[in-house]
């Protein structure tokens, strides 16, 4: 896929929203490269990529959920829970692959729990995942007794995931991010499953009456979300070689913001992976750049909030102009 193709949704019609956000990202980078000395250095850029990569994974997952018209507020605690399970398994002397599989299973099961509560019990996603979030986070505090659990006993056999670099250069988490982003994009735009997700978010009842099994597909999306969250959680644990009870806090805000900046609509039916990645990097670069400039992290929060509102506002204007 060439860059040219990336911004096309259909023949000869570029996706303007995506173009806008991309230009926004470029402008932001330009701003920081002029105002700081080391922003554009390879080291710093890789650092931004590394810091943002884990969050990108949960943002991609969240975008899937948002496209169905739902929301998942439990991604942060699902990530933390999976990381914790891996750490516990390692401390019990299990092999790394087994530990990782257990971690992934934790994510899948939590996602399945969300899916069950939403589709079978019929509880709205906001409430269902708010509940799951609290349950998971609570359990993590109980199990860890509120203190981080070291996972360093396995040594490099585990820590390479979060700390290693491909060819001594590209951090593995960044590589994982690329691979998963590509897979997620292909599933979303090229497969029947992806098309169904859009259909459900666009008009759930119409999708149902068109013969689509809405529940199974929605369930799958929450499971997918749990799976990606657990991957994020495992990378996180590996990176700091310990499982923290507060890991992944605030991920949901980041993920929702990235998706929305990237063009997803909380009412469902709209969203795309590239947009979300750009959105995530806009936030990531803002945090990094403002840091370099010397602005406190408290102000960074303010800035991110402004960007969210600005991005969505620009889109509102764009749609208005188009309709007239």
């Amino acid at each position: 896929m060439t860059i040219h193709n990336l911004f096309k949704t259909k023949k000869a019609k570029p996706n303007m929203q995506l173009l806008f956000t991309f230009v926004g990202l470029i402008l932001l980078m330009l701003f920081f490269s002029i105002n700081t000395s080391n922003f554009l250095s390879q080291k710093n850029l890789l650092n931004v990529a590394l810091q943002t990569s884990v969050a990108v994974l949960v943002a991609l997952a969240e975008t899937y959920v948002i496209i169905t018209g739902g929301i998942d507020l439990s991604i942060g605690s699902m990530a933390a829970g999976s990381g914790m399970v891996v750490a516990i398994a390692i401390n019990h002397g299990m092999s790394i692959p087994v530990a990782i599989i257990l971690g992934l299973l934790t994510g899948i099961l939590s996602g399945a729990f969300n899916g069950f509560v939403i589709t079978v019990l019929g509880i709205v996603p906001f409430i269902a995942t708010l509940g799951t979030n609290s349950i998971m986070r609570g359990l993590i505090y109980v199990i860890l007794n509120g203190i981080p659990l070291s996972a360093s006993s396995a040594g490099e056999a585990f820590t390479w995931i979060g700390q290693g670099k491909l060819c001594g250069w590209l951090p593995y988490p960044v590589l994982f991010m690329f691979i998963i982003a590509i897979i997620a994009t292909i599933i979303l735009v090229k497969t029947k499953f992806g098309r169904i997700i859009f259909a459900i978010g666009s008009n759930e009842n119409a999708a149902f009456l068109s013969g689509i099994n809405v529940n199974i597909n929605k369930f799958s999306v929450y499971v997918f979300c749990g799976l990606l969250s657990s991957i994020a959680g495992i990378i996180l644990t590996s990176r700091v070689a310990s499982a923290s009870p507060t890991a992944g806090e605030g991920y949901e805000t980041f993920a929702i913001a990235a998706a929305v900046i990237g063009g997803a609509s909380l009412s469902g039916g709209k969203g795309n992976m590239i947009g979300t990645i750009i959105g995530a990097f806009i936030i990531g670069i803002m945090n990094n750049g403002l840091n370099l400039i010397g602005l406190s992290s408290f102000w960074q929060q303010v800035a991110v909030g402004c960007v969210i509102i600005l991005a969505v506002f620009l889109d509102v204007i764009r749609v208005k102009l188009k309709n007239n």
Partner: peptide, 10 residues
């Protein structure tokens, strides 16, 4: 019972 965000063919 149509899905507004999808195309006619979809």
């Amino acid at each position: 019972n149509l899905m507004p965000d999808l195309t006619v063919a979809q």
